[in-house]
Design a binder for these strands. Structure first.
Lengths: 255, 255
DNA sequence: CGTGCTGTTGAGGACGATCAATGACGGTGG
DNA sequence: CCACCGTCATTGATCGTCCTCAACAGCACG
């Protein structure tokens, strides 16, 4: 089902640790300094906004459990999903770094979520004291940019089937990277459509194709991968843009 | 014509200054420290690569004059242009920050270009000594990401005409931001097509439409804006994602 | 004076959008 | 407990945008 994820881990901070170790933050001291400034934990219900379009940025938000998406609502009501976010991902770094920008971009909870916050002052202090942390954040932003580029390529060049398969592959790997090893992607067909730039109707047909082929499980009401190799092949997927060599190593990916 | 741009300014460093002042680097000392490490200047001919896919990153590259594009060549030979780059833009920050990543992304000169380089050691020293510089670079990356998001949205949601108009608007503003105030965009229809995710044939028809409408000048062999307000309107363009309030202020942009 | 790139034009076809309707499920309030 | 509603998933039909293929003209280059 869509609303269900692994129950929030003990603290939710383990995902943060995983993420930042992956970004090259190997010093335990730096990591602890980051943990120390993550203040409040708040539960957010599915389909509520975690970061509002245009809200005044006084603090940073980090996802600790659940799945969210960075998106923008257009004039005509349609929604473009730029990227999905998982535990350990920061939701509003862009606002912290370029506050004049991006009033229209928001983050929405796709499942029930748990978030932590860091007030800007603490952030500044911490960055000043831990230069390595600063680099890690820069890396996090770059990784996000890399994901945008890949999505751009995906939408621009690939046919609907590859496109959808691609997005699913990415989510599977990113879940794996934070030790969520299931085969189900906690996302609706509507979400997929908004991320892929396709109509829901067409996504539905594509999903059915993928099920018929055997790449996805026949489970109605859930996007569940049945044959990941087939899916990777259909997607022409190469996950190297994700900067997760450890996870990718057991993902037969070539070219 | 396409190959021609303003002749390279005295040093090319003025564009760099403009860019980084726009990114909030207001201290003259920080700026000077950046200038000091920009080493070699090299001329690159149109359609040569400035940064090769997979080249070993030992230095940073900054564009000092000319126009380039960040792109990737796909298996089938097609090219996706992620973004255009102008004097003051760094070409390979992504490699510096996430060297494990992005072997396939390259930067190509769209006109004759002049570049400067910074060796990684100098960069590290400079960043360590000038924390503000570090933030400015982070901002530069964020701005690039913002441009990727906008392009993503553009390709994903808009019809071909708006799409092309949008890209042209962006380039016009970005040129303006570095004091190049002409109405011609130094880009071919092929480039436009690769950036917009459309076929050249279709872009050609769209360009002709835009000319017929009067938004572009009737000049064959060049993309030249004739009526920017009309173009902005057709594009549904809102340039706020570019983080250039000073430039945008005289660009009647709303919503 | 060819060769190559860019721009231009025409015809046909495919992929995906749009519109419309229905079923299944879950939650809510009477 | 049941009626109601909203979201998600599904199906069919039609239509349009944009792609592909193919050819050719102009200009720049050697």
């Amino acid at each position: 089902m869509v609303g269900s994820m692994k129950p929030p881990q003990a603290s939710g901070l383990d995902a943060l640790a995983l993420k930042f170790r992956g970004l090259g933050l190997d010093s335990e001291a730096d990591l602890q300094s980051l943990f120390r400034i993550v203040r409040i934990r708040e539960a957010i219900n599915r389909s509520e906004n975690i970061v509002d379009a245009g809200s005044p940025p006084k603090q940073l938000t980090v996802l600790l459990a659940g799945v969210a998406c960075l998106h923008k609502r257009l004039e005509d009501g349609t929604r473009q999903i730029y990227s999905f976010q998982y535990p350990g991902d920061f939701c509003d770094l862009h606002r912290y770094v370029l506050p004049e920008l991006d009033q229209a971009v928001a983050v929405m909870a796709l499942t029930d979520c748990l978030i932590g916050t860091i007030c800007h002052d603490d952030m500044e202090r911490s960055l000043a004291q831990h230069p390595k942390l600063s680099l890690a954040f820069w890396r996090a932003s770059m990784l996000e940019a890399s994901i945008f580029r890949e999505r751009l390529l995906n939408i621009s060049r690939r046919a609907a089937l590859s496109r959808v398969a691609n997005i699913i592959c990415e989510q599977l790997i990113r879940l794996e990277a934070i030790n969520i090893n299931g085969t189900a992607i906690p996302v609706t067909q509507v979400d997929l459509a908004d991320a892929a730039g396709l109509s829901v109707v067409h996504v539905n047909r594509i999903v059915q194709d993928l099920r018929r082929i055997g790449a996805l499980s026949k489970e109605r009401r859930s996007i569940e991968v049945a044959d990941r190799e087939r899916l990777v092949e259909l997607a022409n997927f190469n996950g190297r843009y994700l900067n997760m060599p450890n996870v990718l190593s057991h993902w037969k990916i070539d070219a």
